[in-house]
């Protein structure tokens, strides 16, 4: 450390270069390296292959590898950018970047739209919202009468489906989110602003000079 001309980030065999990932995201090089610590701990939890599979993702989220969850599956699928059934380090960093406090509202809005457009039709449809609502109720062991679920869906679509075609398009979703900003709360992880503090063990290992990068 301390060499002003040093730009030599550590290399991770089989993974994208931290300097490149930092240049494409809101993370600094040392933050990308700190994320590698997190990635490493998740990706070796079941199979030590340097990739995160669905079971490992669930284990990291719930501390329980057998817990099936519709939403965790959706997040996993969106993180699995290359559609390989696993998340590699580049996918992990770029996807988490959307959750950075400094990421744009457009990116966050777009991510939530894709999250809820489960069938990838370009619309969030009523039956998808119903399916997610029922999944949420099961997960939280809440019971609501069928009529109540329909009332909630009616109300939601009355507010969000402005053209009344029974589905929520991208523009309708953007407008809805602007009126209901709390819906994007899940899209910001304060941890990401200070990731090197979250993983202090990394700091002692860093080979990167932040000034130089």
């Amino acid at each position: 450390m301390g060499c002003l001309h040093s730009t030599a980030a550590r290399e991770y065999p089989g993974h994208e270069n931290p300097v490149k990932l930092a240049s494409e995201t809101a993370f600094s090089v040392s933050e990308v390296e700190a994320l590698y610590e997190l990635f490493k701990s998740i990706s070796c939890s079941v199979v030590d292959d340097g990739l995160i599979n669905k079971e490992e993702f669930q284990l990291a989220l719930f501390k329980n590898r057998k817990k099936e969850n519709l939403f965790a599956n959706r997040i996993f699928d969106l993180f699995d950018v290359k559609r390989k059934g696993v998340i590699d380090f580049g996918d992990f960093v770029r996807s988490l970047n959307v959750f950075h406090p400094n990421a744009s509202l457009e990116e966050k809005t777009d991510f939530t739209f894709r999250l809820y457009d489960m069938d990838c039709t370009g619309y969030i449809e009523r039956q998808e919202v119903k399916q997610m609502l029922i999944a949420l109720l099961c997960e939280s062991e809440m019971k609501l009468a069928d009529d109540t679920i329909e009332v909630i869906l009616d109300q939601t679509f009355e507010d969000a489906d402005v053209d009344g075609d029974g589905k929520i398009g991208k523009t309708e979703w953007s407008d809805f989110v602007i009126k209901n900003p709390s819906l994007l709360k899940i899209m910001t992880l304060p941890y990401l602003r200070d990731i090197t503090t979250t993983f202090p063990s990394f700091v002692f290992n860093s080979e990167v000079d932040e000034i130089a990068t």
């Binding site: 939403f71 997040i75 809820y116 997610m132 997960e139 009332v151 909630i152 109300q155 899940i186 992880l189």
Partner: peptide
């Protein structure tokens, strides 16, 4: 009785599966 301010997405966004903060908790 349905809370007047609830919409489906507000409920959905409380899912534990959407709370990625837990990835950072040991």
């Amino acid at each position: 009785k349905t809370p007047v301010t609830m919409n489906a997405f507000e409920l959905i966004s409380t899912s534990q599966g959407l709370n990625l903060g837990s990835l950072f908790e040991k």
